[in-house]
Computed example of a mutant assay.
Amino acid sequence: MTKLNVALIFGGKSGEHEVSLLSTASIYKHIDKNKYNVFTIGITKDGKWMYYEGSEENIKNGEWVNLANKNVEINLIPSGSREVGIRFEDGRVENIDVLFPVLHGPYGEDGTIQGLFEISQVPYVGCGVLASSVGMDKLVCKKVFSQIGLPQVEYTYTNKWEFDNNTNQELDNIENKLKYPIFVKPANMGSSVGISKTTNREELLDGINEALKYDSRIVLEQGINAREIEVAVLGNYDVKASIAGEIKPAKDFYDYEDKYLDGASTYDIPAKIDQNTMSDIRRMAIEAFKGIDGKGLSRVDFFIDKDSGEVFINEINTLPGFTNISMYPKMWEKTGLNYEDIIDNLIKLALDSKK
């Protein structure tokens, strides 16, 4: 059997660089190397692309930067006689059959690198330009969800220019629209980076200033007494949803450290919800995915109000975490699809999307 050449692309310039390293190390460990020749291409925090060949441990701990082979040429732009692929020092060129981005956050999950992949004309894993950009932008995504009739908590928004020039007026507007607690989120960031829960005006001011470090547009959401429910989706046109899982945060909310570092939160898979609610959430996850023109994979997050029982969609993550404690592979495993099979499915979906 001829092996497919698969290039894992990881790292990147976003604040989620370290998350990408953890996800990539896990995928590299689990991918079936009897089926695939795996090439690992890292992007440094300052945007340099480098070829690395070695163990997943050195990807995870960041040592790949020092061990990368700087004499290997990476070319993704078809031009003249230059082939798309990886050119080694001896002149050998390995063409890439499938690009597998493992890049979370800006420059990797927001449609920018997907545009490069489209130009390269090489099949790639995951959502395309439109779905990636919409899914990454919490504000635009909320407007899309409203259009397709998915329920959401009350929200408002501001931007750096308005806030810097009319700080007190903007704070007044937010407090008039929402009650405390209020969640503050950068519009374009994932993995809970830059998110804070605020309970008074001083915390709100600090939270907005923190979020503005990551983006010029800020989303503010009404905090509710919520259960946090997640669903994994997989597919191009025939989309499937996993059983839902429930996160039980160790803190006020499921933050970056808990997701990727200490893993202190617990979870239930399947979530302890009735079958009607489970069915509704899985259906809404597929609707959300199709609503942004998703392909390949996403994780869709929901809230269930503990007081009213109402279900609200929170957000969609078009390139969810793949670490050993990430919910996406765990939910599929409980649904009957193991980690290796997820990877196989994603590669097949990438190839099918270009037929």
Results as ranks from 00 to 15, higher is better:
Thr198Gln: 04
Val84Met: 08
Val98Ile: 06
Pro329Thr: 04
Asn345Tyr: 05
Ile286Lys: 06
Leu99Ser: 06
Ser192Gly: 10
Gly135Ile: 06
Tyr180Ile: 08
Glu310Ile: 03
Asn225His: 12
Asp344Leu: 04
Val65Tyr: 01
Tyr254Gly: 05
Ala350Gly: 14
Thr318Pro: 09
Ile148Ala: 11
Ser55Pro: 03
Tyr339Pro: 00
Thr318Ile: 11
Gly194Trp: 08
Lys334Thr: 06
Glu73Lys: 14
Val144Ser: 05
Arg87Glu: 15
Gly190Arg: 03
Asp258His: 05
Leu212Met: 12
His104Thr: 07
Leu261Glu: 09
Thr40Glu: 00
Asp301Ile: 08
Trp161Cys: 02
Asp280Ser: 14
Met50Lys: 13
Phe183Asp: 04
Lys29Gly: 04
Asn317His: 13
Pro249Cys: 06
Asn37Asp: 10
Glu333Cys: 00
Val300Trp: 02
Gly12Glu: 03
Tyr28Ile: 09
Tyr254Val: 04
Tyr36His: 07
Asn37Val: 06
Ile43Met: 01
Asn165Ile: 01
Tyr256Lys: 05
Asn173Ser: 15
Asp32Ser: 13
Lys48Arg: 06
Ala211Thr: 06
Ile273Met: 14
Ala288Trp: 02
Pro101Arg: 11
Glu287Cys: 02
Leu261Met: 12
Asp341Leu: 04
Thr277Leu: 11
Phe117His: 09
Ile269Val: 15
Ile218Pro: 06
Glu94Arg: 00
Ile27Leu: 15
Lys272Ile: 14
Tyr267Cys: 12
Gly15Thr: 13
Asn173Ile: 02
Phe302Leu: 03
Gly296Arg: 01
Arg227Ser: 13
Tyr107Met: 14
Gln275Asn: 15
Ala244Ile: 04
Glu16Asp: 12
Thr335Met: 03
Met278Pro: 02
Ala241Cys: 05
Tyr107Ile: 03
Leu22Tyr: 05
Asp341Gln: 12
Val38Ile: 14
Asn188Cys: 14
Asp206His: 12
Gln152Thr: 11
Gly47Arg: 12
Ser326Asp: 07
Asn71Arg: 13
Ser265Thr: 07
Lys143Trp: 01
Met1Asn: 14
Ile27Asn: 01
Ala131Trp: 08
Gly321Asn: 11
Asp252Glu: 13
Tyr155Lys: 11
Ile208Ser: 07
Leu130Gln: 03
Ile41Val: 12
Gln169Pro: 02
Pro101Cys: 01
Thr24Met: 07
Asp293Ala: 03
Pro106His: 08
Asn66Ser: 11
Lys138Asn: 02
Pro151Arg: 09
Tyr260Ser: 00
Lys354Gln: 14
Leu204Phe: 02
Trp332Tyr: 08
Lys197Ile: 05
Gly207Ile: 08
Asp172Ile: 06
Val219Gly: 06
Ile182Leu: 07
Leu171Val: 14
His30Asn: 15
Ile224Pro: 08
Asn317Val: 12
Ser191Gly: 07
Ile281Cys: 05
Thr199Asp: 13
Asp46Trp: 06
Pro186Glu: 09
Ala232Glu: 09
Tyr267Thr: 10
Glu202Gln: 15
Asp274Pro: 15
Ser191Pro: 03
Asp344Trp: 05
Val153Phe: 13
Asn338Trp: 05
Asn173Leu: 13
Tyr28His: 11
Glu18Gly: 03
Met50Ile: 05
Ile174Glu: 10
Ala241Tyr: 06
Ala211Met: 03
Ile343Arg: 02
Lys248Asn: 09
Ala131Val: 01
Ile313Val: 15
Lys45Asn: 03
Val38Met: 01
Pro101Lys: 08
Asp352Pro: 00
Glu315Tyr: 08
Phe145Ile: 09
Gly245Trp: 11
Ile86Glu: 13
Glu83Ile: 10
Ile218Asn: 04
